[in-house]
């Protein structure tokens, strides 16, 4: 009887650990809000790849939230093995706190940004107000919905795109400032996040145009129907890099450096790039970019570095308390 019990127990243990030679590994990816759908598709492909390569059973946990909020959480001790953000300053802050080296952007191709997005216009069906350019947003009688650049990466890129459109067409900073201040005078509601701006424009029917990320437009069309809105590509816009990094302090503690590095490197493979393109994220892979040229048409784009030096510098000059953006709003 005793023997039977013992063997039963052993059998049970064996059944539970039939994969005893393949380790169970898990990593946590701290990401921004609207990347949820993309990583839901990408993660299973990487889990499969990792199983084939090492035999390990990998579990990828996702944490989503506002990009800066996530960065603050990691700084404050959220044990994320990798961060996948929507703006470089949210990775820079990890370097400032010595969780990752200062040269994090050089560790992977394209400044550690496997894909990018850009700011585009979404207008009401048929574009009744004829909005085509950044200058059109500043016209009187136009109501534009842009998220608050102080609290939202989405709004920040919209602001920088408008500013850069003037500079790249030979304008002076003074002219850029005038255009952007006029545009924001046409913004009736400053939502705190990109998704909030979407709701205001789509569900509350406020505003003639929504300035938002290209991939957000894809989600809107999927969610609310493609027949209610028109996508308008401005003649020139900005490259919004979506940077990624492993968190060195955390992976060294967990012993997950290898898997975390591979997880990010695999984002550059054609398969992952294609998944990204399907979610309207602009791929780096030239072939994939060509394949998806109908949904992600080639645009005249400029980078943050070309016009502003770096996002960090832009942040200090434009969005800090008392910066250029704050100066648009005077006391009433």
């Amino acid at each position: 009887m005793k023997f039977l019990k013992k063997s039963l127990l052993l059998g049970l243990l064996a059944a539970l650990s039939n994969t005893a030679w393949s380790a169970d590994v898990s990593i946590l990816n701290a990401s921004y809000d609207v990347s949820r759908e993309f990583y839901k598709s990408y993660n299973p492909t990487f889990v499969k790849y990792w199983k084939q390569k090492t035999g390990d059973n990998l579990t990828i946990n996702q944490s989503h939230g506002g990009s800066s909020k996530q960065a603050r959480a990691v700084v404050d001790g959220l044990d994320a093995d990798v961060v996948t953000m929507n703006q470089s300053i949210d990775v820079d802050v990890l370097a400032d706190k010595q969780l990752i080296p200062a040269n994090w952007a050089e560790r992977l191709p394209n400044g550690s940004a496997p894909f990018s997005s850009t700011s585009v216009f979404l207008v009401r069906k048929g574009n009744p107000k004829g909005i085509k350019t950044w200058a059109d947003l500043a016209k009187t009688g136009i109501s534009a919905i842009i998220a608050n650049p102080k609290t939202s990466g989405n709004g920040r890129y919209a602001y920088l795109a408008a500013w850069g459109s003037v500079i790249k067409q030979g304008g002076k900073p003074g002219e850029a400032r005038e255009l952007v201040s006029k545009i924001f005078a046409n913004v009736p509601v400053l939502e705190t996040g990109g998704r909030g701006a979407t709701t205001t424009f789509v569900q509350r029917e406020i505003g003639d145009v929504l300035v938002t990320f290209e991939n957000e437009v894809g989600l809107i069309k999927q969610e609310y129907g493609a027949d209610k809105f028109d996508l308008v590509y401005p003649p020139i816009s900005i490259v919004a890099d979506l940077p990624v990094s492993i968190v060195d302090k955390v992976v060294d503690k967990h012993g997950t450096r290898k898997v975390a590095e591979a997880y990010l490197q695999q984002l550059y493979t054609p398969e992952a790039q294609e998944i990204a393109a399907q979610f309207e994220l602009r791929p780096r892979d030239v072939k994939i970019a060509k394949k998806y040229a109908s949904t992600l048409p080639p645009l005249k784009l400029f980078t943050v570095a070309e016009v502003f030096g770096s996002l960090k510098q832009a942040q200090v000059e434009h969005f800090k308390d008392g910066g250029v953006f704050d100066q648009f709003y005077s006391k009433k």
């Binding site: 800066s68 608050n148 102080k150 509601v189 400053l190 939502e191 704050d326 009433k332």
Partner: peptide, 27 residues
């Protein structure tokens, strides 16, 4: 509040929002 306020500076901006804006700057 943030969803209904409109969050316009000097008009309908509440103090908790300014706190969030400052956190956004890591201040």
């Amino acid at each position: 509040v943030i969803f209904i306020a409109g969050n316009m500076p000097y008009i309908s901006e509440i103090s908790p929002l300014l706190i969030v804006a400052k956190l956004e700057q890591y201040d």
